[in-house]
């Protein structure tokens, strides 16, 4: 068990520093773990809450009195899950060979550089002056760029796409995400109307009897 976990972590490290090779091993030799990726997603959600609250005063312009950690956590995680699901729907249509666990694995693993940047920012922002804030912003953006690179490289590898097709798939992913959100909203409003209809019918019946 312990060796298995250390192997997973070793391949996590691998995929950070050599995304193409790392994700190849993960996808085709079963060395990744969707469970670990989900754990990383959760940690990322918590990290966003911590960032909102504990970034140092100079870099923190959030209104702390109105902070809602549940909404920060759920929006962060939901957006990422939405991305994974819509990428899966698109790539299934476009002959991508990756399945949902593989996509989640890539997504979770590729969050790590950004998370590292954010952790550095949260800690160091408590000890800086305004002029040094730029350095931390650069660190965070470096992490973000690295994360995006990992994500693109990872998706390219697991779906066995060319670069152009991968870019098109990612573009379609965003459109699919918008459609999913639209259908979701439609569904919820319809359900809401249905429930209110049932409730009013029930009320009517109670009053008449």
């Amino acid at each position: 068990m312990k060796t298995e976990l250390s192997e997973k972590l070793y391949y996590l490290k691998c995929s950070i520093f050599h995304p193409f090779d790392g994700f190849y091993e993960i996808r085709f030799r079963g060395r990744g773990s969707a469970l670990l990726a989900i754990l990383l997603l959760m940690i990322f959600g918590i990290l966003r809450c911590v960032e909102y609250q504990y970034t140092g005063f100079i870099m923190n312009t959030n209104e702390l009195e109105t902070m809602n950690s549940l909404s920060i956590f759920s929006t962060t995680v939901l957006v990422l899950v939405l991305f994974a699901v819509s990428n899966w729907t698109v790539t299934t249509l476009l002959n991508g060979s990756g399945n949902l666990p593989a996509i989640i694995t890539v997504l979770g693993y590729s969050l790590v550089p950004y998370m590292v940047g954010v952790i550095i920012k949260i800690f160091a922002s408590n000890f800086i002056i305004l002029e040094e804030a730029m350095i931390l912003n650069v660190i965070v953006s470096l992490g973000l760029v690295w994360s995006i690179f990992m994500l693109v490289a990872g998706l390219l590898t697991i779906h066995e796409y060319t670069f152009g097709k991968n870019a098109a798939a990612i573009f379609l992913t965003f459109i699919a995400a918008i459609i999913i959100v639209f259908i979701g909203m439609l569904f919820f409003t319809l359900i809401e109307q249905m429930i209110s209809f049932i409730v009013s019918v029930a009320q009517e019946m109670i009053r008449r009897m």
Binding site: F57, I58, T61, F127, I129, L130, E131
Partner: peptide, 18 residues
């Protein structure tokens, strides 16, 4: 400065404190 939400001057004060 923290109570007054003045980040610019907070930074100056913190520089001295640091």
């Amino acid at each position: 400065f923290k109570l007054g939400q003045n980040r610019n001057f907070y930074s100056k004060a913190y520089n001295g404190y640091r």
